[in-house]
Amino acid sequence: MSLADLVSLVYQYLDNIAFLLLAALGLMIILGVVNVINLAHGELIMLGAYITTIAYHDANLPLPVCMLLSVLGVGLFGMALERFVVRRFYGDRLAALVATWGVSLILSQGALLALGPSMPSVPLPAWTLHYEGYSFGGYRLLLFAIALAAIIATWWVFYRTKFGIRTRATMQNPDMTRALGVDTRNIYLLTFGAGSALAGLTGALYAPTTTIVPLMGTQFVDVAFITVVVGGGANPIIGAIASAALLAGISTPLSSILGTFIGRIGLLIAALVIIRFLPRGISGYWQDLRYQRMARHSS
């Protein structure tokens, strides 16, 4: 294998990591803090792509502005979703799954009825880099950079702001946090909004790369669900990074040699094997190790 082949493989690996991170990060933050899985996450991504497309074609706004509109719009929509639907199901997580599935059906079928089976596509920003006969899409590299930026921003909010401290306290012990005067309902509302805004960002970013159809959410959610299951909700940042790096490492060689389907099957099998031994995902295992170490030091 020549150096160019290696560069190409690394490029595909980074591309896959970016996809997994962007598809799953919002879902994972919501799982970690609010302890709920939003099955309409794929439809929120679809919504983000639609907002970008409509703003681009009908309002003739520049692409970055369209994407910002998606982030804001889907974030607000997510907060409304939390306030009027998800909030009622904090006692029963399986019921929350089913209720958000109803939302997902309504959104995808509603988009199909209101806006038709497909949308005009958004042109892909045409930056290409050439190296030894391979050409690489600059936009794909930008996606990876944005995925990293999203992770760093999440880390900064969690560990460097007052809101982050309250959020982590809520994750650890909601009753105690309430007793200390923090309105945890607000934390849940804002976290759900932030996770949804990330879905909107994902939809906006991938709008130029795929066809915009009402059921496009499904191509994101199957890998997003696997990433979330493998990463676990104990620490969304560690979980997202570790899980995306591991899963992209499994799917990149499999799908480039044996095809996309084998790549997906490989991901599912990897997820099953991992949860057999680490039922709370990688971040749950990492948290257990940390607690064990803390217990050893204090004794």
Partner: peptide, 16 residues
């Protein structure tokens, strides 16, 4: 595993 993992992975199985 926790209860939400099973429906999620089954949905993925179905879609794949």
């Amino acid at each position: 595993v926790s209860g939400w993992i099973i429906p999620l992975l089954l949905l993925v199985l179905s879609l794949i």
